[in-house]
Amino acid sequence: MSLKVEFDEPKCVAAGQCVMVAPDLFDQRDEDGVAIVLDDSPSPDQYDEAREAAAVCPAAAIRLVEG
C-alpha cells in the first residue's frame, strides 16, 4: 500500500494545524502562512501523521489517496 498527499492550496486558511501534527510532511510559507507539502509520498511510518493532518485541516485542503 502507498499513500499520496494531495493539497488544494487555494482552500488553505493558514491555520497551521497540519504543521503541528505532521511537521515532517507540512510547513507554512513565511509571507502568508499558507501550508506547503514537504513530502507528498510519506513513508509508512508517517501514514498516521498524514491521516491526522488531513482530519484536523479546518478547510479540508488535504486529501489522501491510498493505493
Rank of each mutant, 00 (worst) to 15 (best):
M1W: 12
M1N: 14
M1Q: 13
M1G: 13
M1K: 14
M1E: 13
S2A: 13
L3E: 13
L3V: 15
L3A: 08
K4Y: 15
V5T: 12
V5I: 15
V5W: 04
V5E: 09
E6V: 15
E6Q: 11
E6P: 06
F7I: 07
F7D: 03
F7N: 06
D8P: 02
E9A: 12
E9T: 11
E9Y: 04
E9K: 11
P10G: 09
K11T: 06
C12M: 04
C12K: 00
C12R: 04
C12I: 03
V13Y: 00
V13M: 13
V13E: 09
A14K: 03
A15V: 05
A15F: 02
A15T: 05
Q17R: 06
C18E: 02
C18R: 00
V19P: 02
V19R: 01
M20D: 02
M20F: 06
M20S: 09
V21L: 04
A22C: 02
A22T: 00
A22E: 00
P23M: 04
D24G: 13
D24W: 03
L25R: 05
L25Y: 01
L25D: 03
F26P: 00
F26M: 01
F26Y: 11
D27W: 02
R29P: 00
R29Q: 10
R29A: 03
R29E: 07
D30W: 01
D30I: 00
D30L: 01
D30N: 03
E31W: 09
E31T: 07
E31Y: 07
D32A: 08
V34C: 03
V34Q: 06
V34I: 15
A35K: 01
I36G: 01
V37F: 08
L38G: 05
L38I: 07
L38H: 03
D39G: 04
D40K: 14
D40C: 11
S41F: 15
P42G: 09
P42D: 11
P42N: 10
S43Y: 10
S43N: 10
S43F: 11
S43Q: 14
S43L: 15
P44F: 07
P44I: 09
D45V: 03
Q46S: 09
Y47F: 15
Y47D: 06
D48I: 05
D48E: 14
D48V: 07
E49H: 11
E49M: 12
A50D: 07
R51L: 08
R51K: 15
A53S: 06
A53T: 05
A53V: 04
A54E: 13
A54H: 07
A54R: 10
A54P: 05
A54T: 07
A54S: 13
A55N: 11
A55H: 11
V56G: 09
C57Y: 02
C57E: 08
C57M: 08
C57V: 11
C57H: 05
P58T: 05
P58A: 01
P58D: 08
P58R: 04
P58Q: 06
A59T: 06
A59G: 10
A60P: 05
A61T: 09
A61W: 09
A61V: 06
A61H: 12
R63C: 08
R63D: 13
R63F: 10
L64T: 15
L64G: 12
L64A: 11
V65S: 12
V65W: 06
V65D: 10
V65H: 12
V65I: 15
G67K: 14
G67P: 09
G67W: 13
G67V: 15
G67R: 15
